[in-house]
Design a protein around this nucleic acid. Structure first.
Lengths: 333, 333
DNA sequence: CTGTTAGCGCCTTCAT
DNA sequence: ATGAAGGCGCTAACAG
């Protein structure tokens, strides 16, 4: 016969051992209201002796607040998001909040699932990098009434809080740099469906247009997580009119592209120039060092978290913040 | 038809709208017991209409299980841990578990705090990369009776579950490789206090000893998060008998070292060889490409999560698994 | 100052 | 097949 042992010490146990009522124990434990010093001592001692750990589920049930924040990003495998999450975490934990992390992996179904679970968990707020610019999931989130702030990516809604980079400018200054370097056929390996992809593409086009060049749709690709970069690149470079430069959506993609390009026996930047984006730590030491566009990753996370805290605690108006990107010229272009 | 909603719809609301009792609503919602098909339909419809989202806090209170797992690592900023976490997440979410992430940043106090909060949150289990080999926090965790598995780092306890690399071997094959390349003065930039540091150091010494060389304590350093690498390196290299090779605890450190070494005007590997560990994605493309030691990061996470699930669901015995490291020779040595 | 009581939202006997 | 009632652990009135 297995005896079902009570798995956790409760406040009841503490109260009993201290020889006081349950409410008194609660008061003593939480420094609330008036408790006789001696009583408090007894309670704390009992708690100590029993190894009492308050159950925050029960507490949250009562309070209606959980002190938890959900974070949904693409994947922490991308150092860009790792940095964003790190910034978020810094602020959140400093303010007594716990962080629940979800990686959507660019799959809207997983994103939706994450949202549902976060609602079930009754998180107080959500920080979110939505997969799509026109996002059903963000609509759903708005309906849910949970305070949230978008990070790194925005959506078409005008009245949401977000912290993003000026992606139009990213696309523009990157392309301008390549044009300046004499490139005319610039391959744009863009991301997929998200706001950054959308606005960077517009920046790319704008730069081309202003320089008086035609926009060649065949030079614009959307990379999905399952895209076979190797195949794509070698196809593109087997055509007669191969591009002389590649503008990659992010450094992670640029890294992959560099591998493939090298395998193809092409020299960087002589045969093909490569431009990344994010200015990840290692890009400075790549061979050749990667020209890229710096975006304040960590600070974006910090600010997003701060804004969310504002939303949670003061019930402020939506806040929008746009970080300025900065071109970092190195050897790859 | 606008529905006025209070802060959260409860099962009570659903029951009322469906015109049934709470218990029946619960049964219908959870496909439990016998419910008349027509009743079920009404309940589900009501839930749908109200946008009901079950409160998992309340549910967990009843069940005594939360379906949540806590993860404590050094920092997700290190791609090594990002990969580990990613592996963990893959398995956990696939099994209906939610992941709560904490970064200890090598600070035992933060680590302890994380442990406390996870207990308060009543997580079902914990996956944990402890900062110290002789860890008070792991003792505390053991006392807490929460099932856990250590990942990447172990402690002196023999009867805990863990998934680690064979760190003695890491230290050994790395050092042997450098010796083979003709190096005699090998600087070991080790980590701090954790099991990997301990065993790798033993491997390093063992290799030196077996080759018949003396162990020079002045060539062994422990890098802490706040160590000024630049200063350290330039001091070391300003002495007459400078090392000819540097064995770095991990690729992230190796990256920093490469930057500093280059600033000092030294050529790699001619003036100084550099060896990393972890085989991060970008190391292949560094200038020069980094010789490193491959460790199955993602798989370590996957396995740790699987083992934890085993512990949670079948209440199995502790499981220990040690991954084989593999030397990856490139240009930097 | 302290104990009793009524929930927070949900699930589960136990009757009906 | 269904509803009433008790309880998970905790906090907040409300009485003493």
């Amino acid at each position: 016969m297995v005896v079902e042992r009570k798995s956790h010490i409760t406040i009841k146990d503490v109260a009993k051992l201290a020889g006081v009522g349950i409410a008194t124990a609660s008061r003593a434990l939480n420094n609330r209201g008036d408790v006789h010093p001696e009583t408090r001592r007894k309670v704390l001692e009992a708690a100590q002796k029993l190894g009492y750990v308050p159950n925050s589920l029960a507490r949250s049930l009562v309070y209606g607040k959980t002190k938890k924040v959900g974070v949904i990003i693409t994947t922490v495998l991308n150092p860009f998001y790792a940095a964003v999450v790190s910034g978020i975490e810094r602020v959140l934990t400093a303010n007594g909040y716990t962080l629940i992390l979800y990686n959507s992996n660019e799959d809207p179904r997983k994103e939706r699932e994450a949202l549902l679970i976060l609602r079930q968990q009754r998180v107080d707020g959500i920080i979110f990098a939505p997969i799509e610019y026109e996002s059903q999931n963000v609509k759903y989130l708005i309906d849910s009434k949970i305070p949230f702030v978008l990070v790194a990516r925005r959506t078409l809604e005008e009245d949401t809080s977000f912290v993003i980079a000026d992606d139009f400018k990213v696309g523009k200054i990157g392309t301008e740099h390549l044009i300046e370097k004499g490139h005319r056929r610039i391959l744009f390996l863009n991301s997929w469906k998200n706001s950054s992809a959308k606005f960077r593409l517009e920046g790319y086009k704008s730069a081309l247009r202003e320089a008086g060049f035609l926009i060649n749709p065949k030079l614009i690709y959307s990379i999905k997580p399952d895209t076979d970069l190797k195949k794509l690149i070698s196809e593109i470079f087997s055509s007669k009119s191969r591009p002389t430069a590649i503008f990659c959506f992010c450094d992670s993609i640029a890294l992959e592209v560099m591998k493939v390009v090298k395998e193809e026996g092409l020299k960087i930047p002589d045969d093909v120039a490569i431009l990344g984006c994010d200015n990840l730590d290692y890009t400075e030491l790549l061979n050749p060092s990667l020209t890229t566009i710096d975006i304040s990753k960590f600070d974006m996370g910090v600010l997003a978290a701060r804004i969310l805290l504002g939303l949670l605690e003061d019930n402020k108006e939506p806040v929008r913040y746009i970080f300025e990107p900065k071109l970092v010229i190195r050897e790859s272009t």
